[in-house]
């Protein structure tokens, strides 16, 4: 009988406490430098460098609206891939008028790729035989460090701090109680091995590739992934949450994600994808602006 990848490890809490303790022992040592090319008359852009566990130096894009704050904040967490944008592709750059935005480039991504440059594929299985050596432990720490930096800024309204993204957004909201709002789109870390067995698409195909070469490592891989399963992070989340589920009977659809949504401690809305970047994006944007108390949603011109 193989170990499921969503069985909660007995030392789950200790594992993450140890990670946060390591982070707390390291000063963030921020360096903040303006990026004139990305600055506008309504917002100033900055490049930020911070120290995370390792120690490892990570980069982020910060944007601060022109005018008197404090402003609500949007914290964009990294997806699986090398590129992190100032604001996510497909969203309006105009959001920088109304929100402080911060996008973290986790270790291995561009701008945070010295000395470690991640491969895609490659990152999902890097160090996966050992929970303490797994690359995602550092990535989650990078995300928490970014959140600490963001809420330390005087321009940020600490009552309105939204974490937005895929798996790392959930993990950050779980580990950092100063996240007040969460828009979470599950992608990788939920019943991960079981879902990988049913697909040939990357990034989950990385796991199939890995286990074809090392089938004897299956239980160890499952144990490592269990430290990252959404079902264990969800009960730690106190932020008001929008869960963006896939459509229909997908393994990440509303029914499959019901236990995750139901165990989040705060009120949680579940949006079932309409398989339309426009409809899903507009729903998320309107939810965020409403919840963060911003009268006008930052919709791109073609969504208005």
């Amino acid at each position: 009988m193989s170990t499921p990848s969503d069985t909660k490890p007995l030392d789950f809490a200790a594992y993450w406490q140890d990670t946060l303790s390591q982070l707390a022992r390291l000063p963030a040592a921020p360096e903040v430098e303006e990026i004139p090319l990305r600055s506008t008359d309504f917002a100033t852009a900055y490049g930020v460098q911070l120290t995370s566990i390792g120690p490892y130096r990570i980069f982020g894009y910060l944007s601060i609206p022109t005018g008197e704050g404090p402003f609500p904040a949007r914290y964009f967490l990294p997806r699986y891939g090398s590129v992190a944008d100032l604001v996510p592709q497909g969203t309006s750059n105009g959001q920088r008028q109304r929100y402080v935005t911060f996008a973290i480039c986790a270790r291995g991504q561009r701008r945070s790729d010295r000395p470690y440059s991640a491969g895609f594929p490659g990152q999902l299985t890097d160090g996966i035989d050992d929970p303490y050596g797994y690359i995602y432990r550092g990535i989650v720490a990078d995300c928490c460090r970014g959140l600490e930096f963001l809420v330390s800024r005087p321009e940020v309204n600490p009552q309105r701090v939204a974490a937005i993204g895929t798996d790392m957004a959930l993990d950050t909201a779980a580990l950092c109680p100063r996240v007040t709002h969460l828009v979470y789109t599950p992608v990788i870390f939920f019943q991960t091995l079981e879902r990988a067995a049913a697909t040939q698409a990357y990034p989950l195909e990385e796991l199939n590739d890995y286990l074809r070469q090392r089938p004897e490592q299956r239980d160890q891989v499952a144990q490592t992934l269990a430290y990252y399963d959404a079902s264990h992070f969800a009960p730690m989340v106190g932020a008001r949450t929008l869960l963006m589920a896939e459509a229909g009977a997908s393994p990440l659809g509303p029914a499959a994600m019901e236990t995750v949504a139901g165990s989040i401690r705060s009120s949680t809305d579940v949006h079932e994808s309409e398989n339309s970047g426009y409809r899903d994006g507009a729903y998320s944007e309107l939810w965020l602006s409403r919840e963060l108390g911003v009268p006008e949603a930052s919709l791109p011109p073609h969504w208005r």
Partner: peptide
Amino acid sequence: DLTDGYPYQEIADYLRL
């Protein structure tokens, strides 16, 4: 002129500077 999103925004950024 039709969108304010990236990546095309890169060109708008460049022309602003």
